[in-house]
Design a protein around this nucleic acid. Structure first.
Length: 201
DNA sequence: TCTTCGATTGTCT
DNA sequence: GACAATCGAAGAA
C-alpha cells in the first residue's frame, strides 16, 4: 500500500519517525529498485535555522513550500543530490531528509550505480542512496503518493517505537543553538525478524 | 578503526 | 566570494 498524502500532512518530526521501515521505491520503466528507510531527519520551517527555508522562499527551496507528499531534491557540495519528502500543511516549508535505506530489491541496478563500493556502504548516506537509485533534479517535485510515480513510498515493515533512536542532526555544525541540538534525527537497525532478506544481500 | 582533507558547482549574500 | 543537510581516499595508529 502506498502512503497517502495525509501521511505527510502531519508534523515533520512525526513523519520523519514514522518513515522508518517504509519502502522507498525507484522505478525506471520495467526496472525497479527499493529499500527500507532506516534513517531520516526533520527540517521544520523558517524558524529552524538548519532548514533551507531559514532565509525565506528562494527558487531552490520553493518545493518545500508546496504540497505535502512531494519530493524536494537539491544539489550540494558541488556533486551530491539529497532526497527529501515535503511535509506539514501545504504551504508550510518543512521536509524530511532521507539519510539511509537498506536495499532489498533491484540490486543489479544499485550495484551498477555503486560499482566498486562495499555492499554495506551502498545506501548508508543521503548522497549515497540518491546515487544508488539514480535520483537527480529531474525528480524534484515528483508526487510520492502516486502509484505510477517513478519515486514513491509504500508501507514497508514494522519498526517498533522502542527500537528507534534519536540524535542531533548531522552536517549542520554552523547552525546556532537550539537548532543544532534538536533531536530531530531518527534512526533504527534492520529488525532481526527480517534476517532472511538481510542475508540474501 | 579513526582522522584529515580534497573534490566540485549551484545558490545566495 | 563564501559556503554547503557529503563522500571516499589516504594516511596514521
Amino acid at each position: 500500500m502506498i502512503l497517502s498524502r495525509d501521511f505527510y500532512r502531519r508534523s515533520v518530526q512525526t513523519v520523519a519517525r514514522d518513515l522508518l521501515g517504509r519502502r522507498l521505491i525507484r522505478q525506471m520503466g520495467d526496472i525497479s529498485a527499493a529499500g527500507y528507510i532506516l534513517e531520516a531527519e526533520a527540517y521544520d520551517g523558517e524558524q529552524d535555522l538548519a532548514c533551507h527555508a531559514r532565509r525565506g522562499r528562494t527558487p531552490r527551496n520553493a518545493m518545500m513550500y508546496g504540497e505535502a507528499g512531494r519530493a524536494y531534491i537539491y544539489f550540494t557540495y558541488g556533486m551530491h543530490w539529497m532526497l527529501n519528502c515535503v511535509c506539514g500543511e501545504d504551504g508550510y516549508p518543512a521536509a524530511v531528509l532521507i539519510r539511509t535505506i537498506h536495499p532489498i530489491d533491484g540490486l543489479d541496478m544499485i550495484s551498477k550505480n555503486r560499482e566498486g563500493i562495499k555492499k554495506s556502504l551502498w545506501c548508508n548516506g543521503p548522497a549515497k542512496l540518491t546515487k544508488a537509485l539514480g535520483i537527480t533534479s529531474d525528480l524534484n517535485g515528483i508526487d510520492l503518493c502516486d502509484p505510477l510515480s517513478p519515486l514513491r513510498i509504500e508501507e514497508g515493515i514494522d519498526i517498533p517505537l522502542n527500537t528507534i533512536n534519536t540524535s542531533a542532526r548531522v552536517g549542520i555544525q554552523s547552525t546556532p543553538e537550539p537548532w543544532l541540538s534538536m533531536p530531530w534525527r531518527f534512526y533504527a537497525e534492520m529488525p532481526v525478524n527480517h534476517e532472511e532478506e538481510f542475508s540474501r544481500i
